[in-house]
Simulated scan of single mutants.
Amino acid sequence: MKNILLVNDDGPFSEGVEKLKERFENNGFSVFVFVPHQEMSACSHSLTLTKPLHVKEIKKNYFIVDGTPSDCTYLALFHFLKEIKIDYVVSGVNRGYNMGEDVFYSGTVAGAMEGFFHGINGIAVSAKDFSNIDKIVTHFVDFFKKLIDDKLPSPFLLNINYPEGDIKGIKFTSLSSRLYPGNVEECVDPRGVTSYWIGGVPAVWNGEENSDINAVKQGYVSITPLKADITDDSLLEKLR
């Protein structure tokens, strides 16, 4: 029986993590859930080093952490589950796509990548919303069962995004480009204090034919293998 560490960045009781946990367990997997105490979208791969972390087990093998998704994975692997061999770190299902440059901002991807850093297979799973969540978790767990039988080089890191509505199939993709136009909204609260909101402007997409965004737009599941080495090899050669 495979042991799965299930994390997310949507916080506790997200429909995505709850339904995925249930589907995994119904298929005979052992699941341990470690999730942040609140939504931690766009927290990237941050670890909390400036304050102590608190962890509460709210039900059997289900823990809430007052930290980031990376904190959740780290605490689980090196303290709470250190006597258990975790085979996979699965992060999601996240509400909101993680494609293109989003993989650098994403807490969902970071939760899976933290396991990858320590030699454990990591999979990040996202969707635009949960309108077809039952189809998503059924499809993903079926794919997952095939994946673990295929003896891929380990560790691996996959970033998976699901389309809306019906699922036509799977495409193996590269990252697109998803840039957010720079936007800061200034506002003043009732006490006269000025504050600032970052974002709020729709992203601009640019993707080649085999990119994640094109696959999802066409109704396919996008699966993009990632790695930690982001060295620009062509520039490196020019610098040398």
Results as ranks from 00 to 15, higher is better:
179 L>T: 07
199 G>E: 15
55 V>S: 03
112 A>D: 03
163 P>A: 05
128 K>F: 08
234 S>V: 15
80 F>N: 07
231 T>F: 05
83 E>Y: 08
16 G>L: 02
176 S>M: 10
134 D>C: 05
40 M>N: 01
39 E>I: 02
119 G>S: 10
151 K>V: 02
227 K>D: 15
83 E>D: 15
207 G>P: 03
197 W>T: 11
39 E>F: 00
34 F>S: 07
5 L>M: 07
59 K>Q: 06
156 F>S: 03
43 C>R: 00
36 P>K: 08
27 N>Q: 08
64 I>F: 06
150 D>Q: 14
117 F>C: 07
148 I>N: 04
49 L>N: 12
171 K>P: 00
7 V>C: 01
83 E>T: 13
52 P>T: 08
221 V>L: 13
75 L>T: 05
108 T>P: 02
92 G>S: 13
219 G>I: 09
60 K>V: 04
209 E>R: 12
236 L>K: 14
137 V>Q: 05
15 E>S: 12
223 I>V: 13
83 E>Q: 12
79 H>N: 14
117 F>E: 09
181 P>M: 11
237 E>P: 08
44 S>Q: 13
172 F>P: 02
89 V>D: 01
189 D>F: 10
40 M>Y: 01
238 K>Q: 15
211 S>L: 05
172 F>L: 10
159 N>Y: 02
62 Y>R: 12
80 F>L: 11
42 A>H: 14
135 K>S: 11
15 E>V: 08
41 S>T: 11
125 V>E: 10
201 V>F: 13
9 D>N: 00
232 D>Q: 05
64 I>L: 05
11 G>V: 03
24 F>T: 00
100 G>M: 02
164 E>F: 06
179 L>E: 09
180 Y>F: 12
184 V>D: 12
132 N>I: 10
149 D>F: 15
21 K>W: 10
228 A>H: 06
91 S>D: 04
238 K>N: 09
44 S>Y: 07
106 S>W: 06
25 E>C: 10
43 C>E: 09
118 H>F: 13
90 V>E: 04
70 S>D: 01
203 A>R: 10
108 T>Y: 00
16 G>E: 06
67 G>M: 02
147 L>N: 02
187 C>Q: 14
70 S>P: 04
27 N>P: 01
36 P>T: 05
3 N>Y: 06
30 S>V: 04
233 D>P: 11
203 A>G: 04
27 N>I: 05
153 P>Q: 14
5 L>D: 06
65 V>P: 03
187 C>F: 14
147 L>M: 15
47 L>K: 09
74 Y>S: 14
35 V>Y: 01
199 G>T: 12
225 P>K: 15
204 V>N: 08
84 I>F: 09
4 I>Q: 05
111 G>I: 01
26 N>T: 07
30 S>G: 09
69 P>K: 04
98 N>I: 13
179 L>A: 13
217 K>D: 11
214 N>I: 05
8 N>M: 04
169 G>T: 12
107 G>Y: 00
2 K>F: 13
232 D>V: 04
61 N>L: 09
64 I>N: 05
189 D>T: 13
231 T>Y: 02
35 V>M: 02
65 V>C: 04
72 C>E: 01
44 S>V: 06
22 E>C: 10
66 D>R: 11
145 K>H: 01
10 D>A: 11
58 I>M: 11
158 L>V: 00
25 E>I: 03
102 D>W: 07
66 D>Y: 09
222 S>H: 02
206 N>M: 12
179 L>S: 09
145 K>S: 15
236 L>A: 02
